[in-house]
């Protein structure tokens, strides 16, 4: 059983990201979109938390949101909307942190 977690809120405004990382399963994926991509800001505490969580290839970010915010990162795989659709099917369910 795997879950794709989707976060769209900035990691600097609430603790959704840290809560999510705490209960992320070993097969779960994490997709950052909207202001949540600020978690990939180099040198930031959220990025350290993400690196500490050691998600490897299970960390994703929406490409257009990275571009809109001028963020590039090796930590997450940048994906477009067709890949987002496929990603939701690659997991058993999708949990959006509304």
């Amino acid at each position: 059983m795997s879950t794709l977690h989707v976060i769209s809120h900035s990691p600097f405004g609430d603790n959704r990201l840290s809560s999510c990382l705490r209960l992320l399963g070993s097969n779960d994926g994490l997709l950052l979109c909207g202001d949540a991509v600020y978690a990939l800001q180099p040198g930031s505490e959220p990025l350290k938390a993400l690196e500490h969580a050691n998600l490897g290839a299970r960390l994703f970010a929406l490409e257009e949101d990275l571009q809109a915010r001028g963020i590039s990162s090796d930590a997450a795989r940048a994906i477009d909307y067709p890949a987002f659709v496929q990603l939701s099917l690659d997991h058993d369910k999708v949990n959006s942190w509304l």
Binding site: V6, S8, H9, S10, G34, D35, S88, L89, K93, V94, S96, W97, L98
Partner: peptide
């Protein structure tokens, strides 16, 4: 549906 996907927040 096979997948329910919710969108909200920012």
């Amino acid at each position: 549906a096979d997948r329910l996907v919710c969108f909200g927040g920012d």
